[in-house]
Structure formats: C-alpha cells, structure tokens
Amino acid sequence: MTISINDENINYTLEDEHDAGDILKGLTSWLEESGLLIGGLEINHESMPLNETEWKSIPIESIDNISIEALSLREGRVRQLETARDFFILLETAIKTGDEESLKELYEGFRDLKGILPHLLNEGPHPTILPHLEKVFEKGFKGTSSVSAAEAVQMASVLESRRRETASPESEARSSAKTLAEMAESLDDVAVQLQTGQDKTAMETIIRLTEILQMFMRSLSWLDGSDSVEEIMNDMNRVLSELEEALKEGDTVLIGDLLEYEIKPRLIKLPSGMNFSGGNG
C-alpha cells in the first residue's frame, strides 16, 4: 500500500489496522502532532467525502493507495469559513427563488453547521450572532422571505470577514489598526457625550470601536507569536477587560476616563507599533 501526503510518499508502518477508518484514525493523530489536519482524502484514486462514513469500512486488503491533503490549522479554518460562507450564499438564493427542495436540504445541513459556527465566529464568552440566527430560523428555512434572505446575506458577509482575518491576518490587523487610530481622535468627544447625557450617541461609537478592536485581536491571534504580537494582545486585553467592567457597571465617568486616557493613546500608537511580519501565507 502506498500512502502519500500532499503528493509525497511517506513511510508509515501499519500495525493492527483492519480498514480505512483505522488507517485514517492513526494518520490523523500522527498529523496532529505536527499541527496539521486532513483536508482531503483519496482512496484508490477516488475522492472520499470526509463528512461521510461509508468509506471507513473499506477493508485494508482492498486498498492500494491512500492520498491525503494535509492542511495547517489556519488553512483548515479558512476552508471551513469558505464552506460556511458559501452555505449562506446558497441559502439566500434558495430563499429568493422559493426553491423548497433546496431549502429542505440546506436546513438539514444547518444542523451540522450550527455545531461549528461558534468556533468559526469566535465571538468570545458573550455570543450574539448565533443566538440571533437560531431565533430567526427556529421554524426552518422559508422561501420568499426578505427578512430571512437578508439574514443569510449578513451571515455570508460576517463569515467572509472572518475568512479575511484568518487568511491574511497581517494585512487585516494593519487595516484595523489604521481604522482604530482614526477613531481614537474622536474619543475625547465620546467622553464629553457620556457626561452630557448623550449616552446613545456615545454608545454607538463605543460599540463600533469594540467591533473593530475584536477584528484586530482576532487577526493578531493568527500571527506568529512574536514578542510584539503578544505584548499588544496582552495590553489591549487588559484595557478591554477594564472597559467591559465599566460598561457592566454603567460607570460613565470611568468609561470616559478609560477611553480618553487609556485607550486613545494606545490606539493612536498602534499602526507604528506593529513591528512584526509574516502570517499572510
């Protein structure tokens, strides 16, 4: 039997394996030790769907060759995000055209997708996107619903944004840093708004600020763990935790002080302080 990974034959000793499932279980563990995962599989030159199980029972005597596509964790995440994004693009089309057969099939697939969406969205301890999505679609996918179609478009957009953060983390982090530095110039105004009863206007800016900060932090998390990256992440996480606590307490004075004296100077310095490279492969 010939086993190849990314078109290169490997020396892999079989022991007590009886079928394709046994072999792949061992290879999966072996690859994970190197930070890799299986992205594609061919047995006897025939592509096998990883989300199905029929091929696992193929007896070892019937296998001449196994070909595996191995991906890094980041490459694997990008592929998952692309698949999830494309799911919602298909959903929008099916809703708009009222294709009931496709909607039924997509709803079956949605059950599996829901299991990995929290992982893909990476919202942190207080998720909002998936709970909202489940509420919108709690009674299934309905055709010709403009609201449902709009939700599908929004989800595809969110997942595409996550894909960019993962696929090109350095450029996305730098772009977010530039936006944050520009927003920082108006944080003095937000502090004043909080003190003069303009809470709604101030909170709109704070919400937008935290959204961009989360994008920035997610992008940084995919970069190589250099001292510069870790220093930025640790510092921003500390300040964000303080801001979150102040928001929970409704302490407008502390919120204003944090924005003006802690967060603003850090954001202004962000673009020039990002002394790292790599991660856009």
Rank of each mutant, 00 (worst) to 15 (best):
25 K>N: 09
25 K>G: 09
28 T>Y: 02
28 T>V: 07
29 S>W: 03
31 L>P: 06
31 L>I: 11
35 G>A: 03
37 L>N: 12
39 G>L: 13
39 G>I: 13
41 L>V: 11
42 E>V: 08
42 E>C: 14
43 I>Q: 00
43 I>H: 03
43 I>N: 01
43 I>K: 04
44 N>Q: 01
44 N>E: 05
45 H>N: 14
45 H>P: 04
45 H>K: 15
46 E>I: 14
47 S>H: 07
48 M>Y: 03
49 P>Y: 05
49 P>L: 01
52 E>K: 15
52 E>L: 12
53 T>M: 07
53 T>V: 11
54 E>F: 14
54 E>K: 14
55 W>E: 00
57 S>L: 09
58 I>M: 14
59 P>H: 02
59 P>C: 01
61 E>Q: 14
61 E>M: 10
61 E>A: 13
66 I>L: 05
70 A>F: 10
73 L>R: 11
74 R>W: 11
77 R>S: 08
79 R>M: 15
79 R>G: 10
80 Q>Y: 13
80 Q>L: 15
80 Q>R: 12
82 E>F: 02
84 A>Q: 10
84 A>F: 08
85 R>E: 15
86 D>L: 11
87 F>N: 05
88 F>Q: 02
88 F>Y: 10
89 I>H: 03
89 I>V: 12
89 I>Q: 01
90 L>V: 03
91 L>R: 04
91 L>C: 03
93 T>L: 02
93 T>W: 02
94 A>Q: 05
94 A>P: 07
94 A>K: 00
94 A>T: 03
95 I>R: 05
96 K>D: 06
97 T>A: 12
98 G>R: 07
98 G>E: 01
100 E>A: 04
103 L>W: 01
103 L>E: 10
104 K>S: 06
105 E>M: 10
106 L>F: 04
106 L>N: 05
106 L>Y: 07
107 Y>A: 08
108 E>R: 14
109 G>V: 08
109 G>R: 04
109 G>Y: 08
110 F>G: 07
110 F>V: 02
110 F>A: 03
111 R>D: 12
111 R>M: 11
111 R>C: 02
112 D>T: 15
112 D>K: 15
113 L>S: 08
113 L>T: 05
114 K>F: 04
115 G>H: 11
116 I>Y: 12
117 L>N: 06
118 P>E: 09
118 P>G: 05
120 L>Q: 07
120 L>C: 01
121 L>A: 00
121 L>F: 01
122 N>V: 00
123 E>Y: 05
123 E>N: 04
123 E>R: 00
124 G>Y: 07
124 G>I: 05
125 P>C: 12
125 P>K: 11
126 H>Y: 15
126 H>C: 13
126 H>V: 14
126 H>S: 15
127 P>I: 06
127 P>F: 03
128 T>Y: 00
128 T>P: 00
